[in-house]
């Protein structure tokens, strides 16, 4: 029994982080039909902000808030620098500009800070453990689960009940129609980038909380995870992204638990085989998004 509880906590805490990563990626994709390849760098931005604030006397929670704020600003900057100037003209151009912005941010960290890992301050509670029902688990895992649940609930409420959320969903369903009815396009898109940055910032706190340090390439893995999760879940669906995140965490953790040692070395091969099977069964992902309008 304890083994199952342990497994459940492991899946949920990893899945919570994955789901938030995927949500941050899909919220921009849903509206623009464009993958933001600079998404991983938003996670890096929070990390380096925390590193730079590390020597100061600020309480951790303030540093974390500034770190998340910087990710939001970096998200909005992505829109202004990489997307807005070219998005109406060519998809290819946006692909390249978002890659370029990603490289630019990474190399800035490389050049002005260091290619070597830098330490990030962590709150004491991240190093504490909780004992219950015969298992020992880091408090951080439980905080990750709680944060993911709260954020997902708030996010669902915003999307369903507020004017902003309804406007964003309208824009994701049929952008041109939404614009004709008075939804301001630039504002909606910038907001999507800001939310994307916010989610990346929060994820960054927990992701780096596992590692304890930040490197210029730290965003690669979260970007990959978010991308795979959204592909499984359905590129157009917000619920799908969340489901995809948890499913990917379940697959990864499940394989980690169950594969024999000789096969564990090839775990990624098993993960991706399962992903392929899911896509063969449901080519558009597990959840269908809104009926697609034209790309804007």
């Amino acid at each position: 029994m304890t083994a199952y509880i342990q497994f459940l906590i492991d899946v949920l805490s990893l899945g919570g982080a994955y789901a938030l990563m995927a949500l941050g990626l899909v919220i921009v994709y849903g509206i623009l039909r464009l993958v933001n390849f600079a998404y991983g760098e938003l996670i890096m931005v929070t990390g380096y902000t925390m590193f730079l604030l590390g020597g100061s006397a600020l309480p951790w929670i303030v540093m974390a808030a500034i770190g998340v704020l910087m990710a939001i600003l970096a998200g909005i900057a992505t829109d202004y620098v990489a997307f807005r100037p070219v998005r109406a003209k060519s998809v290819t151009a946006v692909l390249i500009t978002s890659f370029a912005f990603s490289t630019l941010l990474q190399n800035a960290a490389l050049l002005f800070i260091s290619p070597r890992p830098r330490n990030v301050p962590l709150p004491d509670i991240f190093s504490e453990t909780v004992h219950f029902a015969g298992i020992v688990t880091p408090a951080r895992n439980l905080i990750t689960i709680a944060t993911a649940v709260i954020l997902l609930a708030v996010f669902a409420w915003v999307m369903k009940r507020t004017v902003l959320g309804i406007a964003m969903r309208a824009a994701a369903t049929h952008f041109t129609m939404a614009r004709m009815l008075g939804v301001p396009a630039n504002l909606i898109i910038s907001t999507a980038f800001a939310i994307s940055g916010f989610l990346a910032g929060i994820v960054s706190l927990f992701w780096i909380g596992r590692i304890g340090s930040v490197v210029p390439g730290i965003g690669l893995e979260p970007l990959l995870v978010a991308f795979i999760a959204t592909v499984i879940g359905g590129m157009r669906s917000l619920q799908g992204a969340v489901l995809g995140g948890f499913l990917l965490a379940f697959i990864d953790t499940g394989l980690n638990y169950s594969l024999p040692q000789e096969l564990l070395k090839f775990r990624d091969a098993f993960t991706f085989s399962l992903v392929i099977l899911i896509l063969l069964w449901r080519p558009a992902g597990l959840m269908k998004g809104p009926a697609s309008g034209q790309r804007t």
Partner: peptide
């Protein structure tokens, strides 16, 4: 016990469960 890990996972939970077991 000899266990495997995949670089970039940043998730050691399954290995930890085996170590504890």
């Amino acid at each position: 016990l000899e266990d495997s890990y995949t670089n970039g996972d940043n998730d050691f939970s399954a290995q930890l469960a085996r170590l504890q077991a």
